[in-house]
Design a binder for these strands. Structure first.
Lengths: 174, 174
DNA sequence: TGTGAAATATAACGCTA
DNA sequence: TAGCGTTATATTTCACA
Protein backbone atom coordinates (compact mmCIF):
# COMPACT_ATOMS: atom_id res chain seq x y z
CA UNK A 1 0.00 0.00 0.00
CA UNK A 2 0.89 3.65 -0.11
CA UNK A 3 3.38 5.03 -2.55
CA UNK A 4 6.59 3.42 -1.54
CA UNK A 5 6.95 1.78 -4.94
CA UNK A 6 7.52 4.35 -7.61
CA UNK A 7 8.24 1.47 -9.96
CA UNK A 8 5.16 0.16 -11.71
CA UNK A 9 4.23 -2.59 -9.32
CA UNK A 10 1.71 -5.14 -10.48
CA UNK A 11 -1.60 -3.40 -11.03
CA UNK A 12 -0.82 -0.27 -9.05
CA UNK A 13 -1.74 3.25 -10.03
CA UNK A 14 0.82 5.06 -12.19
CA UNK A 15 2.35 7.44 -9.66
CA UNK A 16 1.85 5.29 -6.60
CA UNK A 17 -1.16 4.85 -4.41
CA UNK A 18 -2.28 7.02 -1.57
CA UNK A 19 -4.19 5.03 0.98
CA UNK A 20 -6.61 6.22 3.62
CA UNK A 21 -3.92 6.53 6.22
CA UNK A 22 -1.93 8.75 3.89
CA UNK A 23 -5.00 10.85 3.35
CA UNK A 24 -5.47 11.29 7.06
CA UNK A 25 -1.87 12.25 7.36
CA UNK A 26 -2.14 14.78 4.57
CA UNK A 27 -5.29 16.16 6.05
CA UNK A 28 -3.51 16.86 9.32
CA UNK A 29 -0.49 18.32 7.55
CA UNK A 30 -2.59 20.71 5.51
CA UNK A 31 -4.08 21.99 8.75
CA UNK A 32 -0.74 22.47 10.42
CA UNK A 33 2.50 21.47 8.80
CA UNK A 34 4.42 22.36 11.94
CA UNK A 35 3.19 19.41 13.94
CA UNK A 36 5.98 17.25 15.17
CA UNK A 37 6.35 13.78 13.83
CA UNK A 38 5.73 12.43 17.31
CA UNK A 39 2.41 14.22 17.61
CA UNK A 40 1.39 13.01 14.17
CA UNK A 41 2.31 9.43 14.98
CA UNK A 42 0.47 9.55 18.28
CA UNK A 43 -2.68 10.89 16.73
CA UNK A 44 -2.68 8.19 14.10
CA UNK A 45 -1.57 5.38 16.36
CA UNK A 46 1.60 4.83 14.34
CA UNK A 47 5.16 4.33 15.38
CA UNK A 48 7.18 7.49 14.94
CA UNK A 49 9.52 5.87 12.46
CA UNK A 50 6.66 4.62 10.35
CA UNK A 51 4.97 7.97 10.39
CA UNK A 52 8.13 9.79 9.38
CA UNK A 53 8.63 7.25 6.63
CA UNK A 54 5.22 7.85 5.15
CA UNK A 55 5.55 11.60 5.28
CA UNK A 56 8.89 11.46 3.58
CA UNK A 57 7.49 9.15 0.91
CA UNK A 58 4.63 11.54 0.26
CA UNK A 59 7.09 14.36 -0.09
CA UNK A 60 9.33 12.44 -2.45
CA UNK A 61 6.39 11.29 -4.52
CA UNK A 62 5.48 14.93 -5.01
CA UNK A 63 2.13 14.69 -3.28
CA UNK A 64 3.34 17.20 -0.73
CA UNK A 65 4.80 19.96 -2.84
CA UNK A 66 5.98 22.11 0.01
CA UNK A 67 5.03 23.81 3.22
CA UNK A 68 4.29 27.48 3.45
CA UNK A 69 3.70 29.95 6.21
CA UNK A 70 0.30 31.62 6.12
CA UNK A 71 0.26 35.35 6.79
CA UNK A 72 -2.32 37.70 8.19
CA UNK A 73 -2.40 40.15 5.32
CA UNK A 74 -4.42 42.71 7.23
CA UNK A 75 -1.87 42.81 10.04
CA UNK A 76 0.82 43.30 7.44
CA UNK A 77 -0.92 46.40 6.17
CA UNK A 78 -2.90 44.93 3.29
CA UNK A 79 -6.42 44.76 4.67
CA UNK A 80 -8.20 45.05 1.35
CA UNK A 81 -8.63 42.05 -0.92
CA UNK A 82 -10.19 41.87 -4.33
CA UNK A 83 -10.79 39.65 -7.30
CA UNK A 84 -9.75 41.28 -10.54
CA UNK A 85 -11.31 39.68 -13.59
CA UNK A 86 -9.25 40.10 -16.72
CA UNK A 87 -10.45 39.66 -20.29
CA UNK A 88 -8.18 39.70 -23.29
CA UNK A 89 -8.68 41.03 -26.78
CA UNK A 90 -6.32 38.56 -28.38
CA UNK A 91 -5.71 34.98 -27.38
CA UNK A 92 -2.55 33.95 -29.11
CA UNK A 93 -0.47 31.55 -27.11
CA UNK A 94 2.34 34.05 -26.75
CA UNK A 95 0.03 36.79 -25.59
CA UNK A 96 -1.67 34.67 -23.02
CA UNK A 97 1.37 33.10 -21.45
CA UNK A 98 3.33 36.32 -21.42
CA UNK A 99 0.50 38.15 -19.73
CA UNK A 100 0.04 35.32 -17.27
CA UNK A 101 3.67 35.60 -16.26
CA UNK A 102 3.36 39.34 -15.80
CA UNK A 103 0.17 39.13 -13.79
CA UNK A 104 1.33 36.35 -11.51
CA UNK A 105 4.47 38.25 -10.61
CA UNK A 106 2.77 41.57 -10.02
CA UNK A 107 3.16 42.72 -6.42
CA UNK A 108 0.05 42.13 -4.37
CA UNK A 109 -1.17 39.12 -6.30
CA UNK A 110 -1.90 36.19 -4.01
CA UNK A 111 -3.11 33.81 -6.67
CA UNK A 112 -3.68 34.00 -10.39
CA UNK A 113 -6.27 31.76 -12.04
CA UNK A 114 -6.21 31.03 -15.74
CA UNK A 115 -9.76 30.21 -16.67
CA UNK A 116 -11.94 28.89 -19.42
CA UNK A 117 -14.83 31.15 -20.26
CA UNK A 118 -15.40 34.83 -20.74
CA UNK A 119 -12.86 35.81 -18.09
CA UNK A 120 -9.38 34.78 -19.01
CA UNK A 121 -7.82 35.44 -15.63
CA UNK A 122 -8.94 36.00 -12.09
CA UNK A 123 -6.44 37.70 -9.85
CA UNK A 124 -6.79 37.46 -6.11
CA UNK A 125 -5.01 40.50 -4.78
CA UNK A 126 -4.37 42.10 -1.41
CA UNK A 127 -3.67 45.81 -1.15
CA UNK A 128 -3.29 48.62 1.36
CA UNK A 129 -6.44 50.52 0.46
CA UNK A 130 -8.79 51.48 -2.35
CA UNK A 131 -6.25 53.76 -3.92
CA UNK A 132 -3.67 51.02 -4.03
CA UNK A 133 -6.23 48.81 -5.68
CA UNK A 134 -6.85 51.33 -8.41
CA UNK A 135 -3.11 51.75 -8.85
CA UNK A 136 -2.64 48.02 -9.09
CA UNK A 137 -5.18 47.65 -11.86
CA UNK A 138 -3.92 50.65 -13.81
CA UNK A 139 -0.28 49.82 -13.38
CA UNK A 140 -0.13 46.07 -13.65
CA UNK A 141 -3.20 45.02 -15.55
CA UNK A 142 -4.67 47.53 -17.94
CA UNK A 143 -1.22 48.65 -19.07
CA UNK A 144 -0.92 45.45 -21.05
CA UNK A 145 -2.24 45.97 -24.54
CA UNK A 146 -3.84 42.57 -24.76
CA UNK A 147 -6.08 43.35 -21.83
CA UNK A 148 -9.43 44.42 -23.16
CA UNK A 149 -11.46 44.66 -19.99
CA UNK A 150 -11.16 44.33 -16.26
CA UNK A 151 -13.70 44.06 -13.51
CA UNK A 152 -12.78 44.39 -9.87
CA UNK A 153 -14.78 42.93 -7.01
CA UNK A 154 -14.17 43.50 -3.35
CA UNK A 155 -13.57 40.37 -1.33
CA UNK A 156 -15.52 40.40 1.92
CA UNK A 157 -13.89 37.27 3.23
CA UNK A 158 -11.91 34.26 2.12
CA UNK A 159 -12.24 30.92 3.79
CA UNK A 160 -10.16 27.85 3.39
CA UNK A 161 -12.44 25.10 2.20
CA UNK A 162 -12.68 21.57 3.47
CA UNK A 163 -10.33 20.46 0.72
CA UNK A 164 -10.36 17.23 -1.20
CA UNK A 165 -9.55 15.15 1.84
CA UNK A 166 -12.74 16.00 3.66
CA UNK A 167 -14.44 13.09 5.33
CA UNK A 168 -11.14 11.49 6.15
CA UNK A 169 -11.25 8.52 3.84
CA UNK A 170 -14.68 7.89 2.37
CA UNK A 171 -13.85 9.72 -0.83
CA UNK A 172 -11.89 8.51 -3.81
CA UNK A 173 -13.19 4.99 -3.67
CA UNK A 174 -14.76 5.15 -7.09
CA UNK B 1 11.50 48.41 15.78
CA UNK B 2 9.77 45.20 14.95
CA UNK B 3 6.86 43.93 16.96
CA UNK B 4 8.30 43.11 20.30
CA UNK B 5 5.94 45.59 21.97
CA UNK B 6 2.38 44.47 21.82
CA UNK B 7 1.58 47.41 24.08
CA UNK B 8 0.71 50.60 22.24
CA UNK B 9 4.08 52.28 22.12
CA UNK B 10 4.23 55.96 21.27
CA UNK B 11 3.05 56.51 17.74
CA UNK B 12 3.52 52.95 16.58
CA UNK B 13 1.06 50.96 14.54
CA UNK B 14 -1.62 49.23 16.60
CA UNK B 15 -0.40 45.67 16.44
CA UNK B 16 3.30 46.36 16.28
CA UNK B 17 5.56 47.21 13.41
CA UNK B 18 6.91 44.87 10.81
CA UNK B 19 10.20 46.10 9.47
CA UNK B 20 11.98 45.23 6.26
CA UNK B 21 13.91 42.43 7.88
CA UNK B 22 10.68 40.89 9.10
CA UNK B 23 9.29 41.16 5.61
CA UNK B 24 12.28 39.36 4.19
CA UNK B 25 11.87 36.69 6.81
CA UNK B 26 8.20 36.30 6.02
CA UNK B 27 8.92 36.16 2.35
CA UNK B 28 11.28 33.24 2.86
CA UNK B 29 8.86 31.47 5.19
CA UNK B 30 6.01 31.76 2.73
CA UNK B 31 8.22 30.08 0.16
CA UNK B 32 9.23 27.26 2.46
CA UNK B 33 8.16 27.10 6.07
CA UNK B 34 10.27 24.01 6.64
CA UNK B 35 13.60 25.81 6.55
CA UNK B 36 15.63 25.38 9.68
CA UNK B 37 16.23 28.37 11.86
CA UNK B 38 19.94 28.07 11.17
CA UNK B 39 19.44 28.25 7.43
CA UNK B 40 17.15 31.23 7.81
CA UNK B 41 19.62 33.04 10.02
CA UNK B 42 22.47 32.33 7.64
CA UNK B 43 20.62 33.60 4.65
CA UNK B 44 19.73 36.83 6.39
CA UNK B 45 23.05 37.30 8.10
CA UNK B 46 21.45 37.14 11.51
CA UNK B 47 22.45 35.31 14.64
CA UNK B 48 20.37 32.19 15.19
CA UNK B 49 19.05 33.51 18.45
CA UNK B 50 17.91 36.75 16.88
CA UNK B 51 16.33 34.97 13.97
CA UNK B 52 14.41 32.57 16.18
CA UNK B 53 13.34 35.49 18.31
CA UNK B 54 11.90 37.41 15.40
CA UNK B 55 10.09 34.42 13.99
CA UNK B 56 8.56 33.67 17.35
CA UNK B 57 7.52 37.30 17.74
CA UNK B 58 5.87 37.27 14.32
CA UNK B 59 4.03 34.14 15.26
CA UNK B 60 2.87 35.51 18.59
CA UNK B 61 1.80 38.78 17.01
CA UNK B 62 -0.42 36.78 14.70
CA UNK B 63 1.33 37.85 11.51
CA UNK B 64 2.17 34.23 10.85
CA UNK B 65 -1.13 32.46 11.31
CA UNK B 66 0.12 28.97 10.68
CA UNK B 67 2.00 26.74 8.30
CA UNK B 68 0.32 24.39 5.90
CA UNK B 69 1.44 21.63 3.61
CA UNK B 70 0.70 22.19 -0.06
CA UNK B 71 -0.61 19.20 -1.97
CA UNK B 72 -0.48 18.17 -5.59
CA UNK B 73 -4.20 17.71 -6.15
CA UNK B 74 -3.76 16.02 -9.49
CA UNK B 75 -1.52 13.36 -8.00
CA UNK B 76 -4.12 12.81 -5.33
CA UNK B 77 -6.72 12.04 -7.96
CA UNK B 78 -8.36 15.43 -8.32
CA UNK B 79 -6.93 16.73 -11.56
CA UNK B 80 -9.86 18.95 -12.46
CA UNK B 81 -10.24 22.38 -10.93
CA UNK B 82 -13.00 24.89 -11.39
CA UNK B 83 -14.38 28.18 -10.19
CA UNK B 84 -18.05 27.95 -9.30
CA UNK B 85 -19.76 31.31 -9.20
CA UNK B 86 -22.75 31.38 -6.90
CA UNK B 87 -25.55 33.97 -6.89
CA UNK B 88 -28.22 34.15 -4.26
CA UNK B 89 -31.86 35.04 -4.48
CA UNK B 90 -32.08 36.35 -0.95
CA UNK B 91 -29.42 38.19 0.96
CA UNK B 92 -30.52 38.13 4.55
CA UNK B 93 -27.68 37.85 6.99
CA UNK B 94 -28.78 34.42 8.15
CA UNK B 95 -29.10 33.08 4.63
CA UNK B 96 -25.73 34.32 3.55
CA UNK B 97 -23.72 33.16 6.53
CA UNK B 98 -25.43 29.82 6.70
CA UNK B 99 -24.79 29.16 3.05
CA UNK B 100 -21.22 30.31 3.39
CA UNK B 101 -20.66 27.78 6.12
CA UNK B 102 -22.16 25.04 4.03
CA UNK B 103 -20.19 25.90 0.92
CA UNK B 104 -16.87 26.25 2.68
CA UNK B 105 -17.21 22.86 4.29
CA UNK B 106 -18.34 21.05 1.17
CA UNK B 107 -15.86 18.37 0.13
CA UNK B 108 -13.65 19.45 -2.73
CA UNK B 109 -13.71 23.15 -1.93
CA UNK B 110 -10.21 24.58 -1.74
CA UNK B 111 -11.20 28.15 -1.07
CA UNK B 112 -14.46 30.03 -0.79
CA UNK B 113 -14.61 33.74 -1.59
CA UNK B 114 -17.41 35.93 -0.33
CA UNK B 115 -17.62 38.80 -2.79
CA UNK B 116 -19.21 42.13 -3.40
CA UNK B 117 -20.95 42.35 -6.74
CA UNK B 118 -23.22 40.20 -8.80
CA UNK B 119 -21.58 36.98 -7.71
CA UNK B 120 -21.98 36.35 -4.02
CA UNK B 121 -19.49 33.52 -3.77
CA UNK B 122 -16.71 32.07 -5.81
CA UNK B 123 -15.77 28.52 -4.98
CA UNK B 124 -12.43 27.15 -6.02
CA UNK B 125 -12.93 23.42 -6.21
CA UNK B 126 -10.88 20.38 -7.18
CA UNK B 127 -12.58 17.21 -8.35
CA UNK B 128 -11.89 13.83 -9.93
CA UNK B 129 -13.51 14.49 -13.27
CA UNK B 130 -16.29 16.29 -15.08
CA UNK B 131 -18.92 14.05 -13.60
CA UNK B 132 -17.73 14.76 -10.09
CA UNK B 133 -17.89 18.45 -10.89
CA UNK B 134 -21.49 18.18 -11.94
CA UNK B 135 -22.26 16.17 -8.84
CA UNK B 136 -20.58 18.73 -6.67
CA UNK B 137 -22.65 21.59 -8.03
CA UNK B 138 -25.90 19.67 -7.87
CA UNK B 139 -25.29 18.18 -4.47
CA UNK B 140 -23.61 20.95 -2.56
CA UNK B 141 -24.56 24.16 -4.26
CA UNK B 142 -27.83 24.21 -6.13
CA UNK B 143 -29.54 22.15 -3.44
CA UNK B 144 -29.60 25.22 -1.22
CA UNK B 145 -32.80 27.12 -1.77
CA UNK B 146 -31.17 30.52 -1.55
CA UNK B 147 -28.95 29.77 -4.50
CA UNK B 148 -30.48 31.32 -7.56
CA UNK B 149 -27.82 30.72 -10.14
CA UNK B 150 -24.44 29.11 -10.59
CA UNK B 151 -21.83 29.33 -13.27
CA UNK B 152 -18.93 26.95 -13.49
CA UNK B 153 -15.64 27.70 -15.18
CA UNK B 154 -12.83 25.30 -15.76
CA UNK B 155 -9.51 26.31 -14.28
CA UNK B 156 -6.66 25.80 -16.71
CA UNK B 157 -4.01 26.62 -14.18
CA UNK B 158 -3.48 28.29 -10.83
CA UNK B 159 -0.32 30.11 -9.95
CA UNK B 160 0.83 31.43 -6.67
CA UNK B 161 1.30 35.15 -7.05
CA UNK B 162 4.21 37.23 -5.93
CA UNK B 163 2.34 38.10 -2.76
CA UNK B 164 2.36 41.34 -0.87
CA UNK B 165 6.00 41.04 0.09
CA UNK B 166 7.26 41.20 -3.47
CA UNK B 167 10.29 43.35 -3.98
CA UNK B 168 11.69 42.39 -0.62
CA UNK B 169 11.36 45.69 1.16
CA UNK B 170 10.62 48.57 -1.16
CA UNK B 171 6.90 48.33 -0.55
CA UNK B 172 4.92 49.61 2.35
CA UNK B 173 6.89 52.83 2.52
CA UNK B 174 3.86 54.76 1.29
C1' DT C 1 8.77 -1.34 14.61
C1' DG C 2 12.05 0.17 18.05
C1' DT C 3 16.59 2.26 19.28
C1' DG C 4 20.41 5.38 19.82
C1' DA C 5 23.50 8.99 18.03
C1' DA C 6 23.68 13.37 15.73
C1' DA C 7 21.35 17.49 14.69
C1' DT C 8 18.18 20.97 15.83
C1' DA C 9 15.01 23.87 18.38
C1' DT C 10 13.88 26.42 22.56
C1' DA C 11 14.48 29.37 26.26
C1' DA C 12 17.24 31.87 29.41
C1' DC C 13 21.17 34.51 30.36
C1' DG C 14 24.61 38.26 30.29
C1' DC C 15 26.97 41.34 27.31
C1' DT C 16 27.56 45.06 23.78
C1' DA C 17 26.43 49.08 21.04
C1' DT D 1 16.35 48.60 22.96
C1' DA D 2 17.89 45.28 19.40
C1' DG D 3 21.25 42.23 18.37
C1' DC D 4 24.71 38.80 19.59
C1' DG D 5 26.82 34.62 21.50
C1' DT D 6 26.56 31.15 24.86
C1' DT D 7 24.51 27.89 27.71
C1' DA D 8 21.48 24.00 29.14
C1' DT D 9 17.48 21.33 28.11
C1' DA D 10 14.11 19.22 25.27
C1' DT D 11 12.99 17.48 20.96
C1' DT D 12 13.56 15.76 16.32
C1' DT D 13 15.63 13.36 12.71
C1' DC D 14 17.91 9.71 10.54
C1' DA D 15 20.21 5.42 9.77
C1' DC D 16 20.33 0.95 11.36
C1' DA D 17 19.29 -3.21 13.76
Amino acid sequence: MSLRNAQPARGAAPAGTVDDLDRLLLSLLTEDAAVTNKALADRLGLAESTCAYRVRALREAGVITGTRAQLDLALLGYPLQAIVKVRLGSHTMANVSQLYDALATAPGVIQAFHLAGADDFHLHVAVEDAEALRDFVLRHVTTHRVVRQTETHLVFEVRRGAGVLAGGGDRGKR
